[in-house]
């Protein structure tokens, strides 16, 4: 699964640490999600979508192999 978190972060100029703080998770978690090493739960995905003011599927995209 791909994601556009890095792009979304850049749009509103927020760091990984800042996003982690806003979502109540660790910076490692944001980093792992961005790199595609960790797939977040639905709750966290929804929190991200709400924070970036977009839909979940705008941030997380299924790939062919998924």
């Amino acid at each position: 699964m791909k994601n556009t978190i890095k792009v979304e972060r850049a749009k509103i100029d927020i760091t990984q640490a800042g996003l982690a703080e806003q979502l109540g998770v660790s910076r490692q978690t944001i980093n792992a999600i961005e790199k595609g090493k960790f797939v977040p739960s639905t709750v966290l995905a929804l929190k991200m979508a709400r924070f970036f003011e977009c839909k979940v599927e705008d941030i997380f995209l299924l790939e062919e192999m998924d």
Partner: peptide
């Protein structure tokens, strides 16, 4: 728990 415990650490 970690300092900032979340689902990533649980996994």
């Amino acid at each position: 728990k970690e300092k900032r415990e979340d689902e990533f650490y649980q996994q």
